[in-house]
Write a protein that binds this DNA or RNA. Structure first.
Lengths: 161, 161
DNA sequence: AGCAGTATCTGCATACGCGCAGATATTTGG
DNA sequence: CCAAATATCTGCGCGTATGCAGATACTGCT
């Protein structure tokens, strides 16, 4: 990697940073024994605390049938569980199993540790700034995610050329 | 631990940040029409600039046969191409197609834009610190990834023992 | 030149996720 | 109480990714 103008360099630095974080996430998902759709769904559930099957279907972009199976897998793997809705017995709430989230934490532990090492080299003020960035960037990334998913035409199958 | 209370909060902030970045990556991969193994492989190739089929097999943890098909898909989708090794004609180098990487950039564009908005609220000095963090954190995440993959009970792959 | 070792590719079989459409259970409205 | 609407589940088939093992092509060594 040569040393181009700093604007370019920032671009590359950020790109590689994103890639590294993304790859780490994928490795984590695999280590947790979860496929990406399951990992994605679990993140959604953990984030919202609790979702109905239908809501999960909407958020993941899957059909309700596929979502049922997805929940089956998550449940079988011990990451989530079904809970009845007291007011509407057709509905099924899906909620994370706390114990399993701890397992996910374990998988993320190496990343946390390595990053902690990096953070340790900064002053408390600098660390505060970084965490301020984390807090602000998370919603920004979530907004970007929604934007991407909204713009992406669902083209899972490439049979039609 | 100087401050358990704020430490806990940092924990959560960081976790949500990681989740948000990861989900964004997944959405991007899907928008690019790539499955996770393909996205993963493409990241590796882009990072190294060029890999042989065998090296890619090792890095992804796939068998050489599966890797051949993976390269086929990457090539058919226009993200990578095969290039002969001038010194060893058995070998096949896989390299990213620059044009396609630009397409991937497009997919990441929303994230870049949203984060740019966040970064715009900081002073140049603060931004410099953040980019310093990005540069340092990327290798840290890569190390974490290797650690995770090394520890993960990988599906029975290699038979070369 | 011949033989062993290496790198990649190709059939074959298997597993799995997903969409589709119908089935089942429950709520809501007349 | 019956019918329509709603939420989830199940049976079925398709497309695809992967492992395995053999085939093919090339290199290096004797």
């Amino acid at each position: 990697m040569p040393n181009p103008r700093s604007g370019d360099e920032e671009h590359v630095v950020f790109r590689q940073y994103l890639d590294a974080v993304g790859l780490q996430g994928l490795a984590g998902a695999e280590a947790a024994g979860l496929h990406t759709s399951e990992w994605y769904a679990l993140s959604l559930i953990a984030q919202e605390g609790r979702l109905t099957s239908g809501e999960l279907a909407t958020r993941t972009g899957l059909t309700t049938g596929a979502t049922t199976r997805l929940i089956d897998r998550l449940e079988r793997a011990g990451y989530a569980r079904r809970a009845p809705d007291p007011t509407d017995r057709r509905r099924v709430h899906v909620e994370p199993v706390p114990d399993a989230l701890a397992r996910v934490e374990e998988v993320v532990a190496p990343a946390r540790r390595h990053v902690a090492e990096v953070l340790a080299r900064y002053t408390p003020e600098q660390r505060a700034l970084l965490f301020d960035y984390f807090a602000r960037a998370a919603p920004a990334f979530r907004a970007a995610t929604e934007e991407i998913r909204a713009a992406a035409p669902r083209r899972r199958t490439r049979k039609t050329d």
